[in-house]
Design a protein around this nucleic acid. Structure first.
Lengths: 193, 193
DNA sequence: GTCTATAATTTGATAGAC
DNA sequence: GTCTATCAAATTATAGAC
């Protein structure tokens, strides 16, 4: 097999997904559910239907996979954020879109944010993976600072720091309690002026 | 050796710490730094100076250790909270004490909250460990709801959910960014009316 | 790109002596 | 309570054939 056929409902188009992307998809799902250290090469390979030795062809070390996962996740997050906000009528709608990305992870995907999970395991991870996770949080704080500023909120930088923290913790607490009202309460607080 | 001598500065008293407590202390520190799956019996035993086989005498399975850790952590947290709030002049001081417990973990201990870390790894953990982690979050939400109510804040239950989430996420983001201002911004938002 | 085979290490766990 | 000895399984990783 050279490529998995993926049909997108909104594109009358067929895309050949590379094996590399398929590996990243499965690894991301697994790690967002159970963490970096609970996921093995064998398990990822098994879900695709190849051997773990083949996985090492694509990602020589686990650290290589981890780093690429965080980079791709950050890029995809940014792309989704841009796409969801390009037609926003006002800055509040942008902040709502930011919240929606988190809500979608928790409720539709039933997964946490990759960087929240890796952030919790930080000291057991390769250092460059940690740096990338930190970059993700900083980018989000910067983005949210701008949005709060545009919306005319006071103390935008401080609000943005609190907002990013709130959504991160909301994923964990809401998931643990299996109570989406925790996430919604957190989302409300991020929007409140 | 039958007991490690522990001197408390505020008690002119010497306490013999049981081996069981010593194991729990080291396991807690390790797991709060690196997560459940990155910590092994051999490593914990090594730090105490015994063999991993001896550790199995105290905690037959890793799940037994994990469960006991969460229970003890929850009890200690509650005891510290009661102790810190018994002389509080008003409900706001109580909420500040709640925040202080988190601040102390991050800044003094340089560790995350055990239940925040385990919550992020939830799906890779034994189910009873997860239940105990969920209990921790629910207890804190209940406690904070009462405090907000006493302080006369509106929507106390919703605020409490957001507050617990905010402090949980603040630990992760602040630690990842090595930027305590993230925690302080989050702490401010928890206190704001 | 994927496979088989294998190495080197780590891990959770047990049996039985002291 | 702790030890030695040991196990079975899992893990990351590499070499070399196809």
């Amino acid at each position: 097999m050279i490529g998995k056929l993926v049909f997108f409902y909104n594109l009358s188009q067929t895309i050949i997904m590379s094996q590399r992307e398929r590996i990243l998809d499965i690894a991301e799902t697994s790690m967002r559910a159970r963490g970096y250290n609970a996921v093995s090469f064998r398990e990822i390979a098994g879900e695709i239907g190849i051997k773990s030795a083949s996985l090492h062809y694509h990602f020589p070390k686990k650290a290589d996979l981890g780093l690429e996962l965080v980079k791709r996740y950050s890029e995809n997050f940014r792309t989704a954020l841009n796409s969801a906000t390009e037609n926003a009528a006002n800055p509040i709608e942008k902040i709502e879109a930011f919240i929606d990305l988190h809500r979608n992870a928790l409720i539709e995907q039933e997964l946490l944010c990759l960087c929240v999970v890796l952030g919790a395991e930080a000291r057991s991870l390769p250092e460059d993976v940690n740096s990338s996770v930190a970059n993700f949080f900083q980018s989000n704080i910067n983005w949210l600072t701008d949005a709060y500023q545009d919306a005319g909120f006071e103390n935008a930088p401080s609000r943005a720091k609190a907002g990013v923290a709130t959504l991160a913790g909301a994923l964990i607490a809401s998931d643990s309690l299996k109570d989406n009202s925790v996430f919604e309460a957190a989302a409300d607080s991020v929007l409140k002026s």
